[in-house]
Design a protein around this nucleic acid. Sequence first.
DNA 1: AATGAATGAGTATTCATTCAT
DNA 2: CATGAATGAATACTCATTCAT
Lengths: 198, 198, 198, 198
Amino acid sequence: VPRPDVSEERRTQILQAAMQVFAERGFHRARMDDIAHASGLSKGALYLYYKSKDAIIAALMRSLFTIELRGTRALLDAPDPVAERLIAITRMFTSELERMSVALPVLLEFYAVAARQRAVRQFLSEMFAEYQDILRAFVQQGIDRGELRPADPGDVAVTLIALYEGLAVIWVMAPHALHLGEQAEASVRLLLAGLTLP
Amino acid sequence: VPRPDVSEERRTQILQAAMQVFAERGFHRARMDDIAHASGLSKGALYLYYKSKDAIIAALMRSLFTIELRGTRALLDAPDPVAERLIAITRMFTSELERMSVALPVLLEFYAVAARQRAVRQFLSEMFAEYQDILRAFVQQGIDRGELRPADPGDVAVTLIALYEGLAVIWVMAPHALHLGEQAEASVRLLLAGLTLP
Amino acid sequence: VPRPDVSEERRTQILQAAMQVFAERGFHRARMDDIAHASGLSKGALYLYYKSKDAIIAALMRSLFTIELRGTRALLDAPDPVAERLIAITRMFTSELERMSVALPVLLEFYAVAARQRAVRQFLSEMFAEYQDILRAFVQQGIDRGELRPADPGDVAVTLIALYEGLAVIWVMAPHALHLGEQAEASVRLLLAGLTLP
Amino acid sequence: VPRPDVSEERRTQILQAAMQVFAERGFHRARMDDIAHASGLSKGALYLYYKSKDAIIAALMRSLFTIELRGTRALLDAPDPVAERLIAITRMFTSELERMSVALPVLLEFYAVAARQRAVRQFLSEMFAEYQDILRAFVQQGIDRGELRPADPGDVAVTLIALYEGLAVIWVMAPHALHLGEQAEASVRLLLAGLTLP
DNA sequence: AATGAATGAGTATTCATTCAT
DNA sequence: CATGAATGAATACTCATTCAT
């Protein structure tokens, strides 16, 4: 009697539970017992679907950083002015960040791990590179169309990502010191002010 | 015969060793044994100067984030154009970052801890606030002197800090993907381009 | 439609698989999963035929030590000289040992278990007693027929079994240090040399 | 203040406790907690002196099999007839075995492990080889002196060791079925009967 | 002040066994 | 009969902390 394959469901179940527990306790203080309890599964079941705690962490990292870039890429074909589309991207970014705000501690912990582990670092830097490519394309388009003044598109892309990253970090540290969405838009507008041609 | 007080020296010794070990292994995987060995002291001695491992971590955080802002503040009284001084500050920031690059993993780990612990978060957000105040003062001065066009000085200050933080994070993740000093200066110049009045 | 009873077949299947796995990994490191896999059955099926892992071990022990002594006993009625028949028995023993060489690690493990568990010890000592009885009968026959010089038949029987056991152990430890068949025959001939009457 | 080095004492303490626990429960069912308790030390202390449970087992094996062969070797220079000296060796062997009877289950377990692990097997076969060498020398001496009739000294040595091993195994299985000392002497006398020249 | 041997709480992982299907 | 997903008890090992010296 073939039963429906639940393994994908279980994996998701576990990752969601792990996310929650990791956010609360950090990678090291999170016990497999905690994850089991939070997932509604038994400890043994965790090991049916993930080889180890580290494997869960790795899977979580992958799922966390494999952001949906399709929406962003789609905007490349939109007719609107580049500046407007960059503002739209900024809004997408901040709303996404707000949506997954519980995950932010975990995200920062991944950064910390990346600083020490080459493999993680490599994975993250690929993510960065991909995002940078897209943003660079936007800027290049703006220059080509005469909407932006000539500037190194790579520099602008890195600047934008740095802004995003930095705002995210500050927001986590001092969530009440700034309104993420508004500040991000304001910051990007400041940057665009020097780039946009009238 | 009263001997000279070595306790301050010992504390420094311990913190330096801890920094090194934490950077290599992370807070949790760093053993008191490791710190003892790296500091040249015995394990017991660590406990003479610090109550616990957590106390060492806390002390390290304090010493790491209590940046020397005097140099930056002093620039407030300089006669040079604000834009030039902001570039100078940027250079100070990046060279400081490059100087203490071994500490960066520890710094990121503090961020991760902060995301989960109110007390740490509070401490860090105070640091941010202080730095923001200074930068805001620069911008205000620029506006007052007619060097910068009217803009929310707070927004600009946050934008600058976010840029710094973001570039630091990216630099840790992908050290070879950018030249920190040049990129930081380029980014700040892009931002200033929209702010500077001719 | 009554189907043929497969339970006996399954049990054999399981024991053969268990033997193989136990020989490779030892009782404790052998997993029920391994046995299931080696037997081509599912893990659940093992429990249909055996109550537990220990039950499999016990059944295996019984099947392993319930040696076929009929052949040996039959030789009691043969007309050949006792010495010749003892040599023949020795050959049967060694060839049997060589045939089931993969089982030897398991056999030694049973000895180790027996040393700690009364029930197992009892079972094994009964096996020994039975074998000793047979060998004693041979010796007695030899003395009665005037082929062997008077000696305690029990002592001789124990000596023979000890020789067999000892050679088996040495052969397992250092398989290349001796040729089991030749050495066993040589050893028994040395023993018979002092027993045989011209 | 240098304190006396207790590490050797601790190691002995641990090995003795381990021997006791292993004999009672077997290698796998023996818990580190048990050994700690039996040794009067804490669990952590075990790991100060031995890297792992396996390391304890290995050390125990070494201490168990590094038999004192000096006494046996010394007999090579004695003037007594070889046959008498072999009987003396037999007595030394059995009394040694009786003395360390609690260790016999552990010894058998080593045999079982050896059957599966090359390294252990190698270690044990070296022990056997050494013992065989000594016994061979005795036999050779007996032949040279005209006390024993010509026979392959190697064969005789192996036969003697097999006898010893086999008797030990039988004794463990059925301690009440034979008197080790008497049976061993009887068995060796039977063997010598065919070897000794009048 | 300083040492480092000793402690024992804490946890990831394994695997025999069960049972819904 | 048969399956294999799920369970959770059991245990080796680590390491922050203590304290006799």
